[in-house]
Structures are given as C-alpha cells and as structure tokens.
Simulated scan of single mutants.
Amino acid sequence: MKSKFQQLYIPLIVLFGLVNTICLLFKDALQLKQIDPMMVAGANTLLFLICTFSIRSQIKSANNTNPHAMVRGVMGSVVLKLFVLGTAAFIYLYNVGEAQSVNGIFVSMGLYIVYTWLEVKMAMQIKPTKKDGSN
C-alpha cells in the first residue's frame, strides 16, 4: 500500500511535469508572447519544492496532539511560499534589468495560485491518525 505522502504527491508530479513540458515544447511560442520559459520553469521548480516541503510538514502536523498544529502548518507554508517567491521575483527583476519578462511573472503568479489551490485540496485529504494507528 502506498504511503499517505506518495498518494498525495501524484498531482504535484503531474502539474510539475506538465508545466515543464509546456516550457520545453512551446519555448518559441512562449517567447513570441514575451514569456521567458526558463523563468517560468524556475518558478515552477521553486513552487514544486516548497509545496513538497509543505505537504510533508502538514502530514507530520496532522499527527500532532495539538489541534492548532495543522493550521500553523498550512499558514506557515503559505507565508514561506510568499516570502521565497517574493524574494525570487525581486532577485529576478534586479538581475535582468530591461530584459524582464512581465508576462512570465504573471504566469508564475498564476502557477502560485494553482499550487496553493492544489496544496489546500491535498491538505483537506490528510486525516490525522489516532494513537492506536487507526484512521
């Protein structure tokens, strides 16, 4: 039987693979629309890593006896995601100067919303296990 993390992880892998495949296959079409596919793939990778960390911490906090641990885990992951992505956007805009891809930033913001929605959906499926091991 698959672990809880492996079952929840499948939609993340599908989304990550789909976005990176689109960035690779439609590179020229994205560049015509002034979207930097490498920047979008980088943002996708950051979101994937943060969401993976977040789901792991939420599974861990679901087994905590403190009822507020799950809420703190979800809120902490949202704040972490905002700070990391805000910092990454600032570094990107500072380093590229005039060659910035504003449309790529908007696509990345859309990916943030999709990953956050997916994370909340997955968090709703996490059920705490009781001390005797039953659900």
Rank of each mutant, 00 (worst) to 15 (best):
K4G: 06
V71Q: 07
Q125W: 00
Y115Q: 01
F106S: 07
Q7K: 09
F26A: 14
P11V: 14
R56H: 07
G104R: 02
M1G: 11
Y9F: 15
I13C: 10
D28F: 06
Y94D: 11
L15A: 15
V78H: 08
S54Y: 13
Y94A: 04
I105H: 00
M75H: 12
N44P: 06
I35L: 00
I91C: 08
I113Y: 11
L18S: 13
V79H: 01
F16Y: 11
K60A: 14
L111Q: 08
Y115H: 05
G42L: 15
S134R: 04
T87A: 11
A89G: 06
T116K: 01
V71G: 08
T65Y: 12
V96A: 03
V71P: 03
L30S: 05
F106Y: 15
V14L: 10
M75T: 12
L46V: 10
A88H: 08
Q7H: 06
E98T: 13
S77M: 10
P67W: 03
V19L: 02
M39E: 04
R72T: 12
M122T: 10
Q58H: 09
V120A: 13
F26V: 09
L46Q: 09
Q31H: 08
T65V: 14
Y115I: 02
F48T: 01
V84H: 12
F16L: 00
L47I: 05
H68E: 10
